[in-house]
Design a protein around this nucleic acid. Structure first.
Lengths: 160, 160
DNA sequence: GCTTTTTGACTTTCTTTGACCTTTATTATA
DNA sequence: TATAATAAAGGTCAAAGAAAGTCAAAAAGC
């Protein structure tokens, strides 16, 4: 009666036991239950999300894995820390850093993170042009030119 | 479970212990773990970079070696020194000298160093207002600060 | 019919490897 | 002795491989 996702959920719950966190391999687990690897993601996002008291982290590539953690006091401390920082002014870089942290902890998806970053970018938030724009194009022009020359060997301009 | 890179990382960490720095031979280490020598570079650049609190130096040729150092207070003193110099005007030669120093300490990759040198070159900065030297120190300062901030997340300056 | 589950094609990220390059030290030679 | 050749490191970069992520369509439950 219960779906495979439910079985995977209880399997993970059992493996977690009383522990604070658990490391799993997405592929192994999917293999064990004979399901598509992405179904593990489905289980994680529907059963082991923040609302249900969990946070997950992962790493791709060789030796990649997924970590499932209980979202306990320390998590809310972490979140409070971030909210505290947002009581002061936050420049673009810091904002991105915070967004990355939140994405990392699967608080937001990375696609959502991108939107957020765009929303808080200098471009989005401000300022009609100033004189520095001319300089900027000059610098960029210079860098691109030199890069191009270096790659194609035709050096007609001085090295700097 | 964990990748070989992770094992190499902990091996280095263990060897370093509480010490301030550690000398290793790239080839020996690669041999010990049965990996391509370049994988040692991979571990160094992903795990023992400035972001993570380390600086590395190396020497080639006979008796060559790699030194892994904790980026501690003295590092920030060194960095502060450079930033101090950038409070005055900086001509192109001096700028390149500083960039070389930063590349030497693996603060930037040499490919990044090239870009920076181009960005502060007379050609890039030529402008009608004869502000070249002031601009140069400003740009250099900006790049280093941003790099440093990006790595440590302490942002006291505005994003642009 | 609507919601939840399952699947699979495509994407992104991280690791591993290898071929080729640069620098430094040592040794041989004029 | 100065210089040229050789050997002994480490550096770089790109390709191949190994995971996990995304998204939308199909299938299954209710």
């Amino acid at each position: 009666m219960s779906s495979i996702s439910d079985m995977i959920e209880s399997f993970i719950m059992d493996s977690l036991g009383e522990g604070e966190y658990l490391d799993i391999s997405r592929n192994e687990l999917a293999n064990y239950f004979n399901v598509a690897p992405s179904q593990i993601n489905y289980v994680l996002s529907t059963r082991f999300n923040y609302e249900r008291g969990f946070l997950t982290e992962s790493k791709r590539g060789g030796g990649g894995h997924i970590t499932i953690m209980r979202a306990d006091d320390s998590t809310s401390v972490w979140l409070d820390g971030i909210l505290d920082r947002l009581n002061q002014e936050v420049d673009y870089r810091t904002g991105c850093y915070i967004v990355d942290e939140l994405v990392n902890k699967k608080f937001f998806k990375s696609s959502q993170g991108e939107i957020i970053k765009t929303a808080i970018s200098p471009n989005a938030l401000a300022n009609p042009f100033k004189l520095e724009n001319r300089l900027r194009s000059q610098i960029l022009r210079r860098i691109i030119l030199k890069h191009n020359i270096k790659q194609h060997g035709e050096s007609k301009t001085s090295s700097i």
